[in-house]
Write a protein that binds this DNA or RNA. Structure first.
Lengths: 249, 249
DNA sequence: TGTCTTAGTGTATTAAATACACTAAATGCT
DNA sequence: AGCATTTAGTGTATTTAATACACTAAGACA
């Protein structure tokens, strides 16, 4: 391959985009950034996913973790790469997307992006470190119908990947505080999977999971029977998980 | 962000790498390319995954399909993106990898690669179109222990992704000819999942899959009781699949 | 005709999934 | 003090799926 040929293929940006999920008050939320711009003489506002260009000296996972740290102040949050997208016109399908790239001084170049979703819960240990960027907002997933660029597709794919993983891996706990009630856990599954579950069967299943451990602590100040708290033990999970297959045994 | 800053991030190559699986004579094989070079005065040979730089005007999936077409002459083969890898030194960890890049005139640049695995079977309809590149060879997966660059890791991740998908989706059929016997199907699962299965239970399970359909045709010329052929119907599968969950209902 | 080889079949047991309704414990109101 | 309201928490019977296991059938070939 000639040198010229190679250089004509060189001009890629590579970015990471992060779909940050949170779960609160029985709703699945996602962290989005406000995008403001002058467009056709008017102020135009919409929402986009947090993301950034990858630096030449960093790993993709490192870049995603850096974006999250800059966004939330938090380290060590659950991150999963689920797709890479390189559709040539993915940033320039809408006139206002092109205008925004011009206004922020970003060249209209092909950007291959690597998509991650992350799961965060703001529990007591971390709440003091948690500091959201000013332009970041939690939005209920159910109320988002449009985003900048191809970010709506990226979000939808993140949801699909999240559901797939939630079915087979104990990642739901990442979205709950370290102490949680079984009703919270059940609600989380119901909301993300989009179906209702039978309370007694759900609890029967949980009681067969040695890594979901009841602790001697109850809810306080609720005007009904207080629920017991449980914790998830990753250690016990690693030890006791059995490989199970669905399609064939 | 300053223009300078952006340009310093611009110099990415983006490539696709393809892990092409095939199944024959009860073995899982993968298509690899021979890499030949002068190294320390000697001829040095090893193996690498097929792949190529992505062109600026093509989609990632398109690039992967193009690589496969150039490699095998075949269109329309099962392709699945399963990872993106961007470790900064991924191509330059070994001196001989750097030497090879020099010898083919490829600059030592950071190459973010998007990994695909594909499943192919060479059945009667396609065999006339099938023409392997001269430097391509089928190798049994079980006999591969070392590859160029980070390709061994990429292959191992492909295997993990393949196993994960095989458990829950009817992709095994992609590795078999359109007409296959149940023993072939069982062997395929056994080889890929690395476990043995009970013949009667396996067949019981298959008989509950309306999309695995017996046809009125038997093996010929085998020196034992000839097996019946079956076909997989994607159409019936789409109609009858039920969503099942493993971790929670 | 017999031997070799792989195909093909059924049943009993155990484990898991499902469907379903009442009592318990706290708060707050009168 | 007692009652209403709200969510937590529990068990059993039924259906369905998973497992364990051994013999007969059909063709090739000597």
């Amino acid at each position: 391959m000639s040198q010229e040929n190679i250089n004509s293929k060189l001009n890629f940006h590579v970015s990471v985009d992060c779909v940050v999920f949170g779960f609160e008050f029985g709703k699945l939320n996602v962290l989005l950034l406000e995008r403001k711009m002058n467009y056709e003489g008017q102020e135009f506002k919409d929402l986009k996913l947090p993301g950034d260009l990858v630096r030449k000296d960093e790993d993709l996972d490192t870049a995603a973790a850096r974006v999250l740290k800059e966004l939330t102040g938090l380290d060590n949050i659950y991150l999963r790469q689920y797709a890479a997208i390189g559709t040539p016109n993915r940033l320039t399908r809408q006139e206002r997307d092109m205008e925004w790239l011009r206004q922020i001084g970003h060249p209209e170049e092909v950007v291959v992006t690597v998509a991650y979703y992350s799961l965060i819960n703001i529990d007591q240990e971390r709440i003091n470190k948690f500091e959201l960027r000013d332009d970041a907002k939690w939005k209920p997933v159910s109320q988002i119908s449009e985003l900048a660029f191809d970010h709506m597709e990226i979000l939808n794919d993140a949801l699909t990947a999240l559901r797939d993983e939630l079915r087979f891996n104990p990642i739901g706990f990442e979205l709950l505080p370290s102490k949680f009630t079984l009703s919270q856990l059940q609600k989380l599954y119901e909301v993300i999977l989009g179906s209702t579950l039978d309370k007694r069967n759900f609890r029967k299943k949980v009681s067969n999971m040695p890594y979901v451990i009841p602790i001697n602590e109850k809810e306080k100040g609720v005007s009904h029977k207080p629920a017991r708290y449980y914790i998830f033990s990753k250690k016990v999970y690693e030890k006791t998980r059995k490989s199970s297959l669905d399609f064939f045994v």
